[in-house]
């Protein structure tokens, strides 16, 4: 029942997502830094594009790259304080423990979980990335997490 989804020419991928990825980067980084980050995001996507195995979840994939670029920009902005590691207040460590299991989730749940707990995207952004609503994104992430916890207990 799993059909291979054809990968579109890069032009179509870029044309269909460039507007919303720029909007996402502006929210994330502000106007001034969004443009360089936009260029970097699509250059990274282009570098990896020839190695894609299928065309599923391309939108979530694009958001994942954009988010990584945004994280890099933040890191450059705030070089780590010398001496101590800053205290971690986000939930990434918790996600890191589950990460090795995420690959087994259904595609939508996996994307929602990765974007939420791996990258701290808001449910509105995840909804946009997956082409669904904020509510649907919240639901996909929480059912993904439930599934992960069950697996963890096994």
């Amino acid at each position: 029942m799993m059909e291979a989804v054809t990968i579109p020419p890069f032009e179509r991928f870029y044309e269909s997502l460039s507007g919303e990825i720029l909007a996402f980067l502006r929210r994330r980084l502000g106007r001034a830094e969004a443009e360089d980050a936009f260029q970097e995001t699509f250059l990274r996507a282009l570098r990896a594009y020839g190695r894609l195995q299928h065309g599923r979840d391309l939108r979530a994939w694009a958001y994942t790259i954009a988010e990584r670029v945004a994280i890099d920009v933040h890191r450059r902005r705030e070089p780590p304080a010398t001496g101590q590691e800053p205290a971690r207040t986000d939930n990434r460590p918790a996600y890191a423990e589950l990460e090795h299991l995420a690959g087994q989730l259904p595609a939508t749940e996996r994307a929602a979980v990765v974007l939420r707990y791996g990258y701290d995207l808001s449910y509105a952004d995840i909804g946009a990335a997956l082409g669904s609503s904020e509510d649907a994104a919240r639901q996909a992430a929480s059912s993904g997490v439930r599934r992960l916890r069950r697996k963890e207990l096994q």
Binding site: I7, P8, P9, F10, E11, R12, L46, Y49, G50
Partner: peptide
């Protein structure tokens, strides 16, 4: 659009205007 599809099939997916 059609040309981009044909070019992608023949030469590779990284087709861009």
């Amino acid at each position: 659009e059609e040309e981009a599809e044909t070019l992608a099939r023949r030469f590779g997916l990284r087709v861009l205007r």
